Computed example of a mutant assay.
Amino acid sequence: MDVLFLFRIREHQEDMLRSEFPEVNFLFDRKTDDPAVETSEVIVTYGTDVDENVLVRAKNLKWIMVASAGMEQMPLGRIAEMGIRVTNVRGIHKTPMAETMLAHILSYRKKLKDVYEQQERSEWNQKIRGTELLGSKAMILGPGAIGGEVGRLLQAFGVRTYGCNRSGRQAEYMDEMVSFGGLAEALPEMDTVISVLPSTSETKGLLSREHFGAMKESALFLNFGRGDLYEEKVLIEALESGRPAAAVLDVFETEPLPADSPLWNMENVTVSPHISSHSGKYVERALEIFMPNLRAYLEGQADKMQNRVDPERGY
């Protein structure tokens, strides 16, 4: 059986896979124009290079392993029609992303930007006044694996956490829950608003002028989910009007963010170039999900595979 990797992994990881699965013919670091696309039963991809043309050629394809959590760039409708099994690596981003979000929140609340700027000027000024997280409230849109982890960390600082999902169903490390429909009513109480929502038909354009206008003048907004959660011009107008006070953005409508975007030069915006999930352990953690799944697949126990994705729903 051929298993095709459309990206590079380290040599010791290749050796580990060959040792664990001697019955499998692994083809590493190939491109979509490789003839092996036509024979491979499994394709492992980051999800940006499997399009309709690849599917037409992939006559033997039974399973796509996506080494990412996002699925929006894949032809999911066609994949569903073909009955191809899809899994992803949902959950492996939670540690680096939650740590990054917490770092930005603490930096903002403790006025570290001002501290650094003073040092550059060799200025001794004790008038900087940061605030505490203790006793504050945070709204987390998308309290899944990543949202739950940032909720856990925030709770350790004494923050009361509110989760927001489609149904309002309870989620781990959330003190209270609201549904998408109740979001606008809850926002005026929030000191921090964080989105880690995926891109789906229900989340595209979810945040409107009403939502931003309902935020506190002192609120910090972070988007670490997807850039189509709102129209970027709406967020820019909201930040210019002072609600929210500031934003940390790791995702954007257009990536890379165009050089002429106003976001680059706004004093109350931190532009993070979609790097919050970067970690030296990324592939290692992806393989920790892939290997048990491959074992289950080979043993005819596909129902036991982790992180199965419904192509029709996109998650």
Rank of each mutant, 00 (worst) to 15 (best):
R243F: 03
G242V: 07
A138I: 04
L134V: 07
R18S: 12
I289Q: 04
E253P: 00
I128E: 03
E240D: 13
Y282H: 13
H12S: 12
H104Q: 15
K111E: 06
L27S: 09
R57G: 05
G227H: 07
G300A: 03
S241M: 13
Q126C: 11
K62W: 13
M266G: 03
M305H: 11
P256D: 02
G205M: 10
M16L: 14
P35F: 00
L235W: 11
V178W: 01
L249G: 04
L239F: 14
S201F: 12
T32L: 05
L263A: 05
A259Y: 07
S136L: 05
V24N: 01
G77R: 10
A214H: 01
Q301G: 07
L229E: 08
H12V: 13
A58Q: 02
L27G: 04
V50P: 00
Y116R: 13
K281Q: 15
I92G: 01
G47I: 05
D2C: 00
L287G: 03
S218P: 05
Y108R: 12
P292I: 15
E20V: 14
L102V: 10
L298T: 05
A214F: 04
I128G: 07
V54R: 09
L61E: 02
K304N: 10
M174T: 06
L4W: 00
L249M: 04
R285F: 07
A302M: 10
A184T: 12
E232P: 06
A245P: 02
R243Y: 06
E284W: 13
E189P: 02
Y297D: 01
T45E: 05
E189L: 09
G135R: 05
A214D: 04
L154E: 04
V193K: 02
E288T: 15
N293Q: 08
I289T: 06
A238G: 10
V248S: 07
L294I: 08
I43H: 03
K216D: 04
R160P: 01
P292H: 08
P198A: 14
S199K: 14
V44A: 03
N293I: 07
I128Q: 08
S218W: 02
I92C: 03
R121N: 10
R285Q: 11
A259R: 14
I92F: 04
L55C: 13
H211W: 05
R90C: 11
I79H: 04
T32I: 11
L55V: 12
L154C: 07
V66S: 03
E240G: 14
L106E: 00
K127P: 00
W63I: 06
I84V: 13
V150R: 00
A98G: 13
K110W: 12
V251H: 01
M65F: 15
I92M: 03
P256F: 01
Y297N: 01
V159W: 05
F21I: 09
S68Q: 14
S276T: 10
L153F: 06
D310P: 01
I79N: 00
L206C: 10
R78F: 08
E176W: 05
A80G: 03
V42L: 01
